[in-house]
Amino acid sequence: MNPVNYLYLAALLFTIGATGVLIRRNAIVVFMCVELMLNACNLAFVAFSRMHGNLDGQIIAFFTMVVAAAEVVVGLAIIVSLFRTRHSASVDDASLMKL
């Protein structure tokens, strides 16, 4: 098997995640889809790391995880406070910016 297949898998997962972000209204699910995209990227990094024979790709994936963790913490806090004020977790309800 060609290890490039890992990249194809990463691309596929990333696309699925992106599409999910676009079509789901529940903010939590949208967030999960974002996580899915991040994980797809991490897979690609790890695969690259293996191809190039050095650990830099893994380091980047590691940092991605850290940043993702921070992002999840803040993002979920936002969702909670949003739900608290609007009694809804739908991203479409937060549409006051339109004209």
């Binding site: 991490n42 695969a47 994936a61 995880m65």
Partner: peptide, 17 residues
Amino acid sequence: TMIVLAVFYLTNGAYFL
């Protein structure tokens, strides 16, 4: 899915990750 990805990391030599 994430657990599957973890297995893939292990396969790719990223044991720590």
